[in-house]
């Protein structure tokens, strides 16, 4: 079976004034369906940049990225918006919940772009909140939740549309040890039990331990595969 994500000769640089800063150079990477990949590397090595490219939040300079057989580098801005809504679940370091919306409403957000009825949406949201074990907090606003709880809401929001891939940029970066472990266990469960494909950027070796594959990014180049048999 073809990999769910294929990154082919991708390069990316940023322009600052009249200077061009190369960030990624000829990256090649395949990610299999159901994989849990940790992307590590020093600060500034381009991990977030690569993740953003996979999630279609940013555009490549050259090369191609295929996700689920679709070349996302060939899509227009509007097509990408639609594509993201269906195919990608996002988890960020700072949770990125909308403060004026309750946990329930935050999780419901991505569903508003689908054709689901109100009842169907309610069912999906409740299910997602049950998976992250927060169904009794659904009427709370983000400010009323702890960091770990907010991140769990963010995970519920990421999985509620049942996307093709989950991308997480340092999901435990802002959490204490206990909360971080909870989040990692949750992601591990999503990967094992629901066979979600997860791509996670992290600094934290303990976080990386949970992943099945670790890739290191060093000055814009990918290093060898470290496949690990977890536990």
């Amino acid at each position: 079976m073809a990999p769910i994500v294929e990154i082919i000769d991708v390069s990316k640089s940023y322009r600052r004034g009249n200077r061009t800063i190369p960030v990624l150079a000829d990256i090649n990477l395949n990610i299999e369906e159901g994989e849990f990949l940790a992307l590590m590397g020093p600060s500034g090595s381009g991990k977030s940049t690569l993740l953003n490219l996979i999630a279609a939040l940013d555009q490549v300079d050259s090369g191609a990225i295929r996700v689920g057989g679709i070349d996302i580098t060939a899509l227009s801005e509007n097509e990408l918006a639609e594509w993201r809504a269906v195919n990608v679940g996002f988890i960020f370091q700072f949770y990125n919940l909308i403060p004026v919306l309750t946990a329930f409403e935050n999780v419901e957000l991505p569903l508003l772009l689908t054709g689901l009825s109100r009842r169907q949406r309610n069912e999906h949201v409740e299910m997602a909140l049950r998976i992250v074990n927060l169904e009794e907090r659904m009427d709370h606003y983000p400010a009323q939740l702890s960091g770990g709880e907010q991140q769990r809401v963010a995970i519920a929001r990421a999985i509620v549309t049942d996307p093709t891939i989950l991308v997480a940029d340092e999901p435990t970066g802002d959490l204490d040890k206990v909360a971080a472990r909870e989040i990692l266990e949750l992601m591990d469960r999503l990967n094992r039990e629901s066979h979600k494909t997860i791509i996670m950027v992290t600094h934290d070796p303990r976080a990386a331990e949970k992943a099945r594959v670790i890739r290191r990014l060093e000055k814009g180049f990918l290093n060898d595969v470290h496949s690990q048999d977890p536990h």
């Binding site: 918006a81 639609e82 594509w83 996002f90 990125n96 909308i98 403060p99 957000l109 772009l113």
Partner: peptide, 13 residues
């Protein structure tokens, strides 16, 4: 700005 970016991330046009 960040919040509007999140809306866009989630596919809001």
């Amino acid at each position: 700005i960040g919040e509007y970016a999140i809306f866009k991330t989630l596919g809001f046009r």
